[in-house]
Design a protein around this nucleic acid. Sequence first.
DNA 1: GACAAGATTAGACCGGTGGTCTAAATTCGG
DNA 2: CCGAATTTAGACCACCGGTCTAATCTTGTC
Lengths: 222, 222
Amino acid sequence: MDHRLQARERLRKLPEAQRAAWLDIAEDEFMAFGFEAASLNRILARAAISKGQAYYYFADKGELYRAVIERAFDEFVDLLEVAPTEPENTAAYWQQIAALFGKVTTILQRNNRLAEIGRGIYREARAQAAIVDLLERLHTQLARLIETGQRLGAVRADLPLGLLTSMAFAALREADQWFALNARDHDQQTALALNRRVFTVFAAMLAPSAGTCTTVPPATSS
Amino acid sequence: MDHRLQARERLRKLPEAQRAAWLDIAEDEFMAFGFEAASLNRILARAAISKGQAYYYFADKGELYRAVIERAFDEFVDLLEVAPTEPENTAAYWQQIAALFGKVTTILQRNNRLAEIGRGIYREARAQAAIVDLLERLHTQLARLIETGQRLGAVRADLPLGLLTSMAFAALREADQWFALNARDHDQQTALALNRRVFTVFAAMLAPSAGTCTTVPPATSS
DNA sequence: GACAAGATTAGACCGGTGGTCTAAATTCGG
DNA sequence: CCGAATTTAGACCACCGGTCTAATCTTGTC
């Protein structure tokens, strides 16, 4: 594993301009073809990197992909400017979540490049495997957010945190993809309205289930 | 495109035993490595199929995968024995949905092979692309189910059918995967309880949002 | 400034991939 | 029994990600 980190370090120490140029070209290829179908050889040719050079600065194709994604991820976090205030009650909690939801939405709407990069990740298992540490960090953040809600009683606590987080996150990703596919069918007005309703679904998933909402228990298996 | 269907037809007309033997081996490879990493050459070697034979009976790797999945899909449908009764009110509707949910759950629990095949599909975009027509059929069925709920007022109708379907289905897939990964941590008792709660989340997603459940509107984007 | 040691680069090379193609073998109707 | 159509064999292709060696630069030291 030392080899991987060694190469990572070398890539990091490269002159900013060169590194950026390489990653630009790699990003272009990865976004155009996806992780698997992207051709490393093509990237190297376009960027005028020799094979020897390549494997000196990143251990394999996955590591190059990781570098691309990490850069995009950092960009995204910069745009997000997250304010880490602890909400004190349910109302404040939901307000904070809603604000975050809105912010993410507008960032992705305005920055289609970042949005597409993010979608690309979840389309291919091997892409996810290549950046597993980054995804873990993201998932941890989301889980922390939801856990806060649980402590306040704003979020149902009868399911394992990881399970609930995964389900909610998956639903949101799917919604994002739906919007990406059906974007041209909606003007900004209706898109916003739809977006609000998606949040409603999201909130319903997390809300404590006691009482009115869910009336029917599932059937036991035969 | 004619070529594809021609080959498909030839595969279909093959003696049952031979076809089954081929698909068994192909399924084995696909499940062991996933669609992309599965080696067609390895399958052909194991099954003693020559290259010429191979491309005579299926147009490409994706078509062989499709044949494997289609067979599994048919098996699954057989096990499901779906009863197409139209529910007449909300309670009956939810009862039917819950029953279906339970049935699917137990089928997948008891038939790990089918479960793994299903999971494999959603792990790789190119696998999905290879069986896009089958997935469309499945999605249509799910949408029909949810549409019925909408007509009864049991399911919220303020979102496009496809969007709501996709979100709910994605959440369930994610839950299934979570169970697959964390299966050994739970005895059958608690697994069942968890399963019930997952259904609760699912139901909350679909339930009409008016009123009590969702209290806070999302923030507008800045 | 010479020179050794380490860092960096070039690119031939490797086994493997999915897919194509030609020619032979086999099957089958008349 | 023959000619036409179907079916099979496997050599061949471009390309893939990755390895390896030898050459070339860079740098510190005397």
